[in-house]
């Protein structure tokens, strides 16, 4: 007779519990290499918006794998405020996620490259945030001018629709939204990123970003395929552009530069798209901006030349070239345009 005992259910339960704990520990240790971070977003009273936690490190793990130092006022890639050097000029840099540049390393971000190519003569304050539009930028300008004192403002215009939004005064946070944001901040502060990420994958819908809805009802017939809507030449939204630009003029009298860098050229359905579908809208926007004394720089030609030389300004190996966010090449083109524009004195300061 063998002395060997048959494992009990409790033994198996314990074995599996230990296994699950060990696997979770392995994931906890390795996930920073592959899972983005979820940071609390404290309220910045100078900017009147929520920003990424200053002093933290933000990991981006999507098309580009990069870590970003979050500086004062939630500025990505800037560990500390630039010195008050009278010889250098300080510029506020506004935009959405394309200008935020969390896909690339700090030394490849627009602010770093501008400082480098200008010989530290230009200090760019990276104030862009993902998802922002004209309403968000204009509402922050007064606070930023008061605290950081930029000599001029630079707007990276990737999607003109950001300037076609109806004028809205972004008020200070309501009690409800503040409570919701604080709750999210608590989760981001205490819950490991991999747990938040897994839960998010499970409960949210990839297409809409909202909560996942489940369907259990059998279907009668097939859903009609979404008809490919022909690209129609629409009249540019001149009135909203004018309203936003007038509002910008009303909040600041400092020089403003608009850098037009649309998602162009791009790759769609296996073809290089050479036509800027917003060309007509840009003409209208440029005219309106110049009428108000603003400088406008069109980056389309330099983007096109870059593509012709085999260097795509957008896209990453981990994503897809020709789509997505600006990469190191794209950031360099943008930075050089800023440095050149201010070096030639096109924008007064």
């Amino acid at each position: 007779m063998s002395d060997r005992r048959v494992p009990t259910a409790a033994y198996h339960g314990l074995r599996w519990l230990v296994g699950v704990v060990a696997a979770t520990a392995i994931i906890a240790v390795t996930s920073p290499c592959f899972v983005r971070s979820y940071l609390p977003r404290p309220y910045d009273t100078d900017r009147n918006v929520r920003v990424l936690q200053p002093g933290s490190n933000y990991r981006w793990r999507s098309e580009g794998y990069a870590s970003t130092t979050i500086g004062p006022h939630g500025m990505p890639g800037l560990s500390e405020l630039p010195d008050d050097d009278p010889a250098s000029i300080r510029l506020a840099f506004w935009g959405d996620s394309q200008a935020e540049g969390v896909c690339v390393a700090d030394h490849q971000k627009v602010a770093s490259v501008v400082a480098e190519v200008s010989g530290q003569d230009i200090a760019l304050l990276p104030l862009a945030r993902s998802g922002d539009n004209a309403n968000d930028w204009i509402c922050q300008i007064a606070g930023i001018e008061a605290t950081l004192g930029p000599a001029a403002h630079v707007f990276l215009v990737v999607e003109l629709s950001d300037w076609a939004v109806p004028v809205e005064t972004v008020a200070t946070e309501s009690a409800t939204s503040r409570a919701a944001d604080e709750w999210e901040n608590q989760i981001a502060a205490w819950c490991p990123a991999f747990v938040i990420h897994a839960s998010r994958n499970l409960v949210t819908d990839a297409e809409t970003g909202g909560l996942r809805t489940l369907r259990f009802r059998p279907r009668w017939g097939q859903p009609a395929p979404a008809a490919a809507s022909p690209i129609q030449e629409q009249e540019p939204p001149v009135a909203p552009y004018a309203a936003q630009l007038d509002r910008l003029r009303s909040v600041t009298d400092r020089p403003c530069l608009f850098l037009y860098a649309p998602k162009f050229p791009s790759i769609a359905r296996g073809r290089i798209v050479q036509k800027d579908s917003d060309a007509k809208a840009f003409d209208a926007f440029e005219r309106l901006a110049r009428e108000r004394g603003y400088a406008v720089v069109d980056l389309r030609d330099s983007m096109r030349r870059s593509v012709q030389s085999g260097r795509w300004p957008r896209g990453f190996h981990n994503g897809q070239f020709g789509v997505g966010h600006y990469n190191a090449t794209g950031n360099q083109l943008i930075a050089r345009a800023i440095a050149d524009t201010f070096a030639t004195g096109v924008v007064g300061h």
């Binding site: 074995r15 599996w16 230990v18 296994g19 699950v20 060990a22 696997a23 979770t24 392995i26 994931i27 996930s31 592959f34 899972v35 991999f194 990420h197 897994a198 994958n201 499970l202």
Partner: peptide
């Protein structure tokens, strides 16, 4: 048990 839990975590993440 560890490998199975790792596979499930990997699927979720």
């Amino acid at each position: 048990p560890t490998a199975t839990a790792l596979l499930i975590w990997t699927l979720l993440l």
